[in-house]
Amino acid sequence: MSLLHAEHCSMHFKGLKAVQDFTLDLEEGELVGLIGPNGAGKTTVFNMLTGVYVPTEGKIFFQGQEITKAKAWQINQGGIARTFQNIRLFGDMTVLDNIRVALSFRIRYKMLDAVLRWSQYQKEETRVIEESMELLRLFHLDGKQHFLAKNLPYGEQRRLEIARALATKPKLLLLDEPAAGMNNKESEELMQLIRWIREHFNLTILLIEHHMPVVMGICERIKVLDFGQTIAEGTPLEIQSNKRVIEAYLGEEVED
């Protein structure tokens, strides 16, 4: 049984067919890339998988359970986490609190515990701070835990967003253009980070990325979308030599 199984998913907005007949199987531990020109519908796929949109057609299963119509928070609690193309941190909260929010649905104390600051509150908060700090340390963000997230430099914001997604303890991580706005050195570091978190957290990763060296460098399998349709699927090598893929990308460059 595959970890994630999406069959014949389509997403239509007012006549616009953003994604058509999208099918995907992710095996546990895989690192798969989702690429395609701008407006190909990649983020829409993420939004369907994470419950932001309910697909117009098709079904999605995660660990054998249907999640097609589940709410975003249910899907996240079930084990799928994501980052966003345009970073969506809790800007006016501290770095530490960003992580603590991600841990919140696992925090076990009642309103009365919080109001009276009873031992259950103390115990749980201590655990959560320790857990958060450990995660921040892994991402080299310790020492900045009291900074407001909005005051971090761009690269650290990206890292914090990944750390925050991991704090929800997902089995499947969806990364939406993690290398956007990074130079070659930074994206090289990012690749290593992604490889490493996959090992360390036992993750399956689905990745949207424009930066071709990153995609070709770390993905085991790549799926290519154009105008909402899947036009190719295969290993990085196969994709690089696929005629339709090259055409799709050339078309984009001509428009630019």
């Binding site: 994470t50 919140s104 919080a114």
Partner: peptide, 21 residues
């Protein structure tokens, strides 16, 4: 935790929902 969740919703509701809230 309650207040953090409220503030997170204020800061970015979509991200908050994606954090299992």
């Amino acid at each position: 935790n309650y207040g953090r969740v409220w503030i997170a919703i204020r800061e970015n509701v979509i991200a908050a929902e994606m954090m299992g809230i």
